[in-house]
């Protein structure tokens, strides 16, 4: 988190984490499409030829002045593939909140778990942990046939009892709800830390 007192600007970083192809980029693209250009900047996607995220996607938006204070949000996605481990570490650094986009498909459970473990390891390397960070789970691809029941995903993935949402990101279902909840948790977290 960054506070520029001169501008009364408070800027937070939210990172979309999860295995490759779970729908992280799709989340960002939907948010980008929903926000009026006067409130947001460009979206950048560093992609390979076949459309896979290579480093990160990024977009930022701000709200109007709230009693003189200007909240500003920076959203990042990480590349999911195993070999981009260093990229994930770099993007994760300084994150104020995390959205974990899980792929609900039956055959992707292993990848979800691996990615969750990778996330926790990267946080620990920074002296942090999932447990003390605003964290929201999104069970994406609920439109597909071969998916696991939410109850089971909850048991397997949500051991921290984090808020969770079902989503169909390519149709925008659950995307905005996920983001709003994450922002709410981040603000509560900052509030707590400033008071402490």
């Amino acid at each position: 988190m960054f506070i520029n007192w001169a501008k009364r600007e408070i800027s937070v970083k939210i990172v979309y984490y999860g295995p490759g192809l779970s729908g992280k980029t799709t989340n960002l693209e939907y948010i980008y499409s929903k926000i009026d250009p006067s409130y947001r900047g460009e979206i950048v996607s560093l992609k390979t030829k076949d459309d896979r995220t290579i480093f990160f996607d990024f977009m930022q938006f701000e709200l109007g002045s709230i009693r003189g204070k200007k909240p500003h949000f920076r959203l990042y996605t990480v590349p999911g593939q195993r070999f981009y481990a260093s990229s994930r570490k770099i993007i994760l650094s300084g994150a104020d909140g995390i959205v974990f986009v899980a792929d609900s498909q039956r055959n992707r459970l292993r990848e979800n778990l691996d990615s969750m473990l990778d996330l926790e390891q990267n946080l620990i390397a920074e002296g942090r942990s999932m447990a003390d960070l605003p964290f929201v789970l999104q069970y994406n691809k609920r439109d597909l046939d071969q998916i696991l029941a939410v109850g089971l995903l909850q048991k397997k993935l949500n051991f921290l009892n984090a808020p969770y949402y079902e989503a169909v990101a390519n149709r925008g279902i659950g995307v905005v709800e996920t983001l709003k909840m994450t922002i709410q948790l981040v603000i509560e977290d900052i509030e707590r830390k400033l008071r402490a």
Partner: peptide
């Protein structure tokens, strides 16, 4: 501490609803 007062959160919520 003044940066985020009790009203801040609800204002952010309203504004998010507006733009999203």
């Amino acid at each position: 501490t003044q940066m985020i007062d009790s009203e801040f959160k609800s204002f952010v919520k309203d504004d998010l609803n507006k733009i999203l």
